Computed example of a mutant assay.
Amino acid sequence: MNFNQFKSIYPSAFLTDDTKNDPNYLTFPYDNQWIHFDKKQLTSSEIKLLYLVFNKTVSNENTGNPQSKWSDFLLDDQLHLPVETGVYRIIQFDINKKDTRFDKKLWLSSFKSFFKDVQEAFFINDHYGLLIHRYSDYSITQDETIGILQTLDDDFSTKTSGYIGQHWPISIDFKRFFKEEQAIFFNQLKGNKQIFSLPDVALSYYASDALSKSSIIQHLKKDLISHPETKELITAIWLNQGNISLAAKYLFIHRNTLQYRLDRFYEESGFSLKNRNDLLLCYLLTI
């Protein structure tokens, strides 16, 4: 069902880019956003039906374990912890390019095989899912996780976006942290990085709301976005931490060409992307 169909049945339903975390609403991931239903306007049967509609893939694809304590805890209103102790990390994945021959079970099995201490891995819908694993001295690093997803993309002819969560000790707060990480992932899916973690996107995610309220920032941003190649230039310098040679490789241009563009940008804007403060401000203008 599309949103308009839900809206025709539940007029108070609405979409947001974040989870809202309001106990008065029933909330589900929906098309890279969140859909919310007022619990006061739902019968117990309707609540059960909505859970079935939005979480049916979990029960069907949950690696042979439909009574999953992890999925109940993370996706439903269950408050019981899935385990008693330990530190865990959730890796979110979104496969946004696949052909009709794509085998979800084989992909998931392959993905799990790279990790030790996997607690659970499952698809929530036909393209989005989670892998939960326990922290140990042998836990895979972020760079290794990026390499794994890139390898799977090559093997399965897919294009996967991923969010590598932080390690959190299991507690009632774990679910709240996951909901925020989920909101970050959905918000940043169309950003510059295909696979990322909190340090990669924290600045753009948490600063975007404040920046949108600044008349100064909006005025500067209006001038900047009128030249699309300028955003590409700033992004390249930012992602490569001000290293001109690496930024030139990122843009597939000669170092001297990039240097010329930097000089021209300085002449036109008064901002030097070689200066860390200027670069930070200009990057914020691209968010």
Rank of each mutant, 00 (worst) to 15 (best):
residue 251 L to E: 07
residue 249 K to C: 08
residue 28 F to T: 03
residue 160 T to Y: 06
residue 268 E to C: 07
residue 104 K to D: 08
residue 269 S to K: 06
residue 177 F to P: 01
residue 52 L to C: 03
residue 190 K to Y: 04
residue 11 P to F: 05
residue 260 Y to C: 05
residue 149 L to R: 03
residue 80 H to A: 15
residue 241 Q to S: 12
residue 5 Q to D: 10
residue 105 K to D: 15
residue 78 Q to Y: 09
residue 99 D to E: 11
residue 134 R to I: 07
residue 201 V to K: 09
residue 62 N to Q: 07
residue 51 Y to A: 00
residue 99 D to A: 04
residue 149 L to M: 07
residue 112 K to S: 08
residue 143 D to A: 11
residue 114 F to I: 04
residue 1 M to K: 12
residue 185 F to Y: 05
residue 97 K to V: 05
residue 263 D to T: 13
residue 257 T to R: 09
residue 219 H to S: 14
residue 147 G to T: 02
residue 104 K to Q: 13
residue 165 G to N: 00
residue 233 L to Y: 03
residue 251 L to R: 15
residue 279 L to R: 11
residue 45 S to A: 15
residue 214 S to H: 05
residue 68 S to K: 05
residue 142 Q to H: 11
residue 53 V to S: 09
residue 18 D to H: 15
residue 192 N to D: 13
residue 37 F to M: 07
residue 236 A to M: 08
residue 56 K to V: 07
residue 96 N to K: 12
residue 118 V to S: 02
residue 80 H to L: 14
residue 196 F to D: 02
residue 242 G to N: 04
residue 144 E to K: 13
residue 168 W to S: 04
residue 103 D to W: 04
residue 90 I to N: 05
residue 139 S to E: 06
residue 268 E to I: 13
residue 91 I to Y: 01
residue 107 W to V: 03
residue 231 K to I: 09
residue 218 Q to L: 10
residue 57 T to V: 03
residue 55 N to R: 09
residue 281 L to T: 08
residue 226 S to P: 03
residue 213 K to C: 09
residue 71 S to C: 14
residue 188 Q to D: 02
residue 49 L to M: 07
residue 160 T to D: 01
residue 80 H to M: 13
residue 150 Q to W: 00
residue 287 I to N: 08
residue 242 G to S: 02
residue 24 N to C: 10
residue 83 V to R: 10
residue 26 L to V: 00
residue 101 R to E: 13
residue 182 Q to H: 11
residue 136 S to F: 04
residue 77 D to S: 12
residue 90 I to V: 15
residue 186 F to T: 01
residue 74 L to P: 02
residue 277 N to M: 08
residue 281 L to A: 01
residue 145 T to S: 12
residue 112 K to R: 12
residue 200 D to W: 08
residue 152 L to Q: 03
residue 109 S to I: 04
residue 96 N to V: 08
residue 116 K to C: 00
residue 127 H to R: 14
residue 60 N to A: 13
residue 256 N to C: 10
residue 144 E to M: 05
residue 209 D to N: 10
residue 213 K to D: 10
residue 190 K to L: 05
residue 192 N to H: 12
residue 222 K to S: 13
residue 2 N to K: 08
residue 101 R to D: 15
residue 284 L to S: 06
residue 244 I to G: 07
residue 249 K to Q: 13
residue 174 F to Y: 11
residue 87 V to C: 10
residue 130 L to W: 02
residue 145 T to R: 00
residue 266 Y to K: 14
residue 15 L to K: 14
residue 157 S to G: 00
residue 255 R to W: 01
residue 36 H to A: 08
residue 11 P to K: 04
residue 213 K to T: 12
residue 247 A to H: 04
residue 276 R to V: 14
residue 83 V to K: 12
residue 228 P to N: 04
residue 152 L to W: 00
residue 281 L to N: 00
residue 66 P to S: 10
residue 183 A to R: 06
residue 167 H to S: 08
residue 171 S to C: 11
residue 23 P to G: 06
residue 118 V to E: 00
residue 115 F to Q: 01
residue 250 Y to F: 14
residue 24 N to A: 15
residue 243 N to H: 09
residue 209 D to W: 06
residue 263 D to W: 03
residue 37 F to G: 02
residue 238 W to Q: 05
residue 263 D to F: 06
residue 56 K to Q: 11
residue 159 K to M: 10
residue 17 D to V: 11
residue 240 N to A: 07
residue 133 H to L: 05
